[in-house]
């Protein structure tokens, strides 16, 4: 049961609050899950609502870069795969919106925040998909980075978020593999196809590393997120894991990671510093496609208004008929 029990009927005294807060902290420290009807600190509710909403928005906006290639996929098989993947992203958005709603925010508020441009979503989706290999690079790198981020979230302290992440991670692996397959075919193809694969890697590499967020030294929410077991690894830890996993994959493809500082130290792949100024620009609305993405979401919402109206009218009509008969 997801939505009920959110209203505190009586105001809590200070003693009650500190007792509840202590109980909450020890529960989370003991790796027990927090459920929607449990008492939780306001700051925890706010943190989770923001994170799950941003995650949901990212899934929804994430449909747009790949949607660009649905009508131009190189074969029927690729088109079917891409359609299934884009549909998964919509599904992931819906699981996550449902999880966010259990914290007391409404679906309409969340949608409104996205359309108005007041909500954040992952910076990665503000980059353009210029050619077909970009679809491969997104599956391989972007979904690969997403998996790195999301697998630990399956153990998040907030039950509905953790359960949504389990479903999502199960489906995400298909996304990564189909992307790597696209890259493999191109990398083993003609010189022109190899060049496409390399070009896509060149453009998606750094933005993928930025998906893990700012360096730990500058990350504002790390400590609390770790204590409340929302996050299990820091941004830099996950970024390093991603690089260590991905560099050998690029070597298998015979492609070059666009980082002159990349070197193996016997244990880890050392890499150069992402352009954090670019990251901030993209996150604050000034990336290559921010305006285009928001305009596309708003257009889709507006163009779908008649469908929502028709659905309500149809349901009303059916209800009236059922009453009459």
């Amino acid at each position: 049961m997801y939505t009920q029990g959110l209203d505190q009927t009586e105001p809590l005294g200070e003693d009650d609050l500190s007792r509840l807060s202590e109980r909450f902290e020890s529960k989370v420290a003991a790796e027990q899950k927090v459920e929607p009807t449990d008492w939780m600190p306001d700051a925890y509710r706010t943190l989770l609502t923001r994170q799950i909403a941003q995650h949901a928005h990212s899934e929804i906006v994430g449909m747009l870069p790949e949607g660009n290639w649905l009508s131009r996929a190189p074969s029927l098989r690729r088109k079917g795969i891409l359609l299934a993947k884009v549909q998964d992203e919509a599904g992931h958005g819906l699981y996550l919106y449902s999880a966010a709603e259990t914290l007391g925010v409404t679906r309409d508020e969340l949608v409104e925040q996205l359309l108005a441009g007041t909500a954040k979503y992952s910076s990665i989706f503000n980059y353009p998909t210029l050619q077909w290999a970009d679809v491969g690079a997104i599956g391989w790198l972007v979904d690969g980075a997403a998996i790195m981020n999301q697998v630990p979230l399956c153990r998040c302290s907030y039950g509905p978020y953790a359960r949504a992440m389990v479903r999502i991670c199960r489906e995400e692996s298909f996304h990564q593999r189909q992307g790597f397959e696209v890259m493999t075919v191109l990398a083993q193809g003609s010189p022109a196809q190899r060049a496409m694969a390399q070009d896509a890697l060149d453009r998606w590499w750094w933005p993928s590393l930025m998906m893990f967020g700012p360096p730990d030294a500058e990350s504002t929410h790390n400590d609390r997120s770790m204590r409340w077991k929302v996050k299990r690894f820091t941004n830099d830890e996950l970024r390093q894991k991603f690089v260590d996993m991905t560099v050998p994959q690029a070597h298998y493809l015979g492609l070059t990671i666009p980082d002159p500082d990349l070197s193996y130290d016997g244990e880890y792949w050392r890499f150069g510093e992402p352009d954090w100024a670019e990251f901030k620009r993209v996150l604050t609305g000034d990336g290559p496609c921010n305006r285009e993405r928001l305009a596309a979401r708003n257009k889709a919402h507006d163009d779908g208004a008649w469908v929502r109206e028709a659905a309500v009218a149809h349901a009303d009509k059916k209800r009236a008929r059922a009453v009459a008969s």
Binding site: Q87, L94, S98, R167, V312, K318
Partner: peptide
Amino acid sequence: GSLHAVDADMAVENARDV
């Protein structure tokens, strides 16, 4: 999980897709 739908029929159809 859960979802929003205007009536039960739509909820079943959307539940299949989601």
